[in-house]
C-alpha cells in the first residue's frame, strides 16, 4: 500500500468576485521514508496542495489518504510547517515547542524531554525561557521545526522553510533538517522555489506549472546524489547536469506563460 496517496485533486477558491482554480488534476504517490520536493513558480498552488494534504480543508474534488485513511480524520499524524515560523509571540520558546503536544493532549514528561532534546539537536540551548522576538530569524525557523517535529508526525511538510534565511544559515539548516529526518526515517514534502535546494534535499522533484496548478514533470534525483548530504550534493559534478535539465523545463514554463499572455 502506498504511504501517501493523492488522487485526482482539483481545487477552486471561490470568492465573491471570482473563482480561482488553484489546482487541477493532481495525482501523486509517496512511499514511506521518501523525501519529495514541490518546485514551481509563485502562485502555482503549492501551499494550497500542502493545506489539502494536511487536511486543513477539503479539495473541491479528489481525495488524500495516508496509509489508506482519509487525512481529515488524522490530523496529528501530519506535521505541517507554514511558510513563516508563526511562533506565538506571547508564549516562551518552551511553551511554543510544546504547543502541538498540548493541543492533542499528548503532553507528558517523556514527550517534553524529547522536545527539549530536539531543541538541543538543532543547536539551540538556553532559549526555553526566551520569547520568540528575542531570537534571530534562523533560530525561530528552527524552533518552528522543533514544534512541528515534537508531535512525532508520520509525514512532515515544510513550506519554503529556508527562503527567508541568509545563504549560510540556509545551507546549515538544510544539512541539519536532512540529517534529522534521515535519522528518524521520516517521510517529508518540501516546497521550494530553489532548484538547487530541491536537488540537494530530495529523492524526487515534482515541477508544477501555474494557472491552473498541475504537475508539469517529475524528476528522479540520481541515487548517488541522494546518498550525499545537501551540502555535498550542491558541489557534486552530477548536480550541474540535473540542475540544467530542470532549469530548462522551468524556462519553457516561463516562455509558455509569456506566449499565453501575448495576444
Amino acid at each position: 500500500m502506498t504511504f501517501l496517496n493523492v488522487q485526482d485533486i482539483h481545487h477552486t477558491y471561490f470568492t465573491k468576485s471570482n473563482a480561482v482554480t488553484a489546482l487541477s488534476n493532481i495525482s501523486l504517490q509517496v512511499e514511506e521514508g521518501e523525501f519529495i520536493s514541490f518546485l514551481g513558480p509563485s502562485g502555482c498552488g503549492k501551499t494550497t496542495l500542502l493545506s489539502i494534504i494536511a487536511g486543513l480543508f477539503q479539495p473541491t474534488e479528489g481525495r488524500v489518504e495516508l496509509e489508506g485513511k482519509q487525512v481529515a480524520t488524522l490530523k496529528s499524524e501530519i506535521g505541517y510547517m507554514l511558510q513563516q515560523d508563526y511562533l506565538f509571540p506571547w508564549k516562551t520558546i518552551e511553551e511554543n515547542i510544546l504547543l502541538g503536544l498540548k493541543i492533542n493532549h499528548h503532553l507528558d514528561e517523556e514527550k517534553k524531554a524529547y522536545a527539549k532534546d530536539l531543541l538541543l539537536q538543532m543547536g539551540l540551548s538556553d532559549v526555553e525561557s526566551l520569547y520568540p522576538k528575542q531570537l534571530s530569524g534562523g533560530m525561530r525557523q528552527r524552533v518552528a521545526l522543533v514544534r512541528t517535529l515534537a508531535t512525532e508526525p508520520k509525514l512532515l511538510m515544510l513550506d519554503e522553510p529556508f527562503s527567508a534565511l541568509d545563504y549560510q544559515t540556509k545551507l546549515h539548516l538544510e544539512n541539519l533538517v536532512s540529517d534529522t529526518l534521515k535519522s528518524f526515517g521520516k517521510t517529508a514534502i518540501l516546497v521550494t522555489h530553489d532548484i538547487g535546494e530541491a536537488i540537494a534535499m530530495s529523492d524526487r522533484i515534482y515541477l508544477f506549472s501555474p494557472s491552473p496548478g498541475k504537475v508539469h514533470k517529475v524528476f528522479e534525483v540520481p541515487e548517488e546524489l541522494r546518498e550525499c548530504s545537501p551540502f555535498d550534493t550542491r558541489n557534486h559534478p552530477l548536480n550541474a547536469e540535473i540542475f540544467q535539465t530542470i532549469w530548462k523545463e522551468m524556462e519553457s514554463l516561463g516562455s509558455q506563460e509569456s506566449h499565453k499572455s501575448t495576444p
Binding site: 486543513l56 490530523k75 502541538g100 493541543i103 492533542n104
Partner: peptide, 14 residues
C-alpha cells in the same frame, strides 16, 4: 487575529 496562528493550531488538530 492573524489566521495563520489558527492554521498552526489546526495542523495539530486544535
Amino acid at each position: 487575529v492573524d489566521p495563520n496562528y489558527i492554521k498552526v493550531l489546526q495542523t495539530f488538530g486544535g
